[in-house]
Amino acid sequence: MSFLQQVGANTIARIAAVGRAGLMLSGALFAAPKLKNVSLTVRQVYVVGVQSLLIIVVSGLFIGMVMALQGYTILVDYGAEGSLGPMVSLSLLRELGPVVTALLFAGRAGSALTAEIGLMKATEQLSSLEMMAVDPLRRVVAPRFWAGIISMPSLALIFSAVGILGGHLVGVDWLGVDSGSYWSIMQSTVEWQKDVMNGVIKSLVFALVVTWIAIFKGYDSIPTSEGISKATTETVVFSSLAVLGLDFVLTALMFGIE
């Protein structure tokens, strides 16, 4: 009985949390936008986007390089090392770009968002905004949300581009694959609509989910040091799981059914 009761209580708590998250998001997004909020959003793009740039570029470069190295050793056995270009670029554009960017973003920017908003709550800054008749959803939540939505697809595109250049560096400059065939076979395989745009759509979905989780976890956190540390951990865990799960669903929808 007590086990069933616990299951029930947990379920109700989860559903209530989803409801609160939805209310928070709709409150943030449907509040009448002000011109002032544009500059707040630019500032947040700096915090979540620009400051994540280094880790994204370095990871993209190394992942591209490793894929070229691994791919080459496999493909060369079949004399198909010319297919290195499409292998590297398709993996990056369809999967690794959006997914790895989302995971890194959750760790780098998502956790910071949760901690920042959680601490704003703990230090009564959110309450104080409300008492100043300034809606914290509009002032604090909305700019961060839009910044996440803008930044992550941009970061994913940069990640893929850098990764493809990294693959070129290893595959062509180091292992001696023909530069012309690296690019031209890539060009004949990669399709703008199917590969690049689908990757961007994936990335937009991940941006929505990760930013939403991060902001909600901060906004809904228990304002103690323990509560914030738990919220930060949960942001990273939940968004990573959500990204990986959604990736499968999106891949099945986009590429699974011909």
């Binding site: 554009l93 941009s154 595109l157 893929s160 493809i164 990669v190």
Partner: peptide
Amino acid sequence: VGVFVVLTIGAILLLALKVA
């Protein structure tokens, strides 16, 4: 942020012209 935007456009151009 301007640099970020330029980098993003650069990535899009690379993907559009050189990759796809």
